[in-house]
């Protein structure tokens, strides 16, 4: 699997950490982190990651608003985004899908299986 750069935007530092460990350990991918929507947008613009893992529930600017901002930005529009959400209800999933997001991964997830899930959602071949 080619080396990828993943941006994780989540206000929980522990999540950032386990995701970083998990992806590095299982896929050898590079992980960069942001703790808020705004910080995430800046990092996306600066670092051009291969994809973004975006937490839906965040204070101030939530995941949906962040996603919309990323979509409006020419530099970030083409970066695939997967939502991380604790809301597992089908109706909520439908709502997220309607935004045009690339995929949804429900919490709690296993960081060791995350790389595999991302590949599946984004059709990345190993």
């Amino acid at each position: 699997m080619s080396e990828k750069c993943i941006l994780i935007i989540d206000d929980e530092e522990s999540i950032q950490t386990v995701v970083e460990f998990g992806l590095k350990m299982t896929a050898g991918w590079e992980v960069i982190s942001a703790s808020s929507g705004n910080e995430g947008i800046s990092r996306a613009q600066a670092d051009h990651p291969d994809m973004i893992l975006l937490d839906v529930m965040m204070p101030e600017m939530d995941g949906l608003a962040t996603f919309r901002a990323l979509q409006l930005n020419d530099q970030t529009r083409s970066i695939p985004v997967i939502f991380l959400t604790a809301k597992a209800q089908a109706s909520e999933k439908r709502l997220f899908n309607e935004t045009g997001v690339n995929g949804i991964i429900t919490k709690p997830f296993n960081a060791l299986e995350l790389a595999q899930q991302i590949c599946k959602v984004l059709n990345w071949t190993e």
């Binding site: 929980e12 522990s14 999540i15 950490t17 386990v18 995701v19 460990f21 998990g22 350990m25 529930m57 604790a86 809301k87 919490k107 709690p108 997830f109 296993n110 960081a111 060791l112």
Partner: peptide
């Protein structure tokens, strides 16, 4: 339930990583 999911994700993943 929602609030539990985030810390659970961290614990769950951390334990899995440790177990490797």
């Amino acid at each position: 339930s929602h609030e539990l999911r985030t810390p659970l994700t961290s614990i769950h993943s951390a334990l899995k990583i440790l177990a490797t």
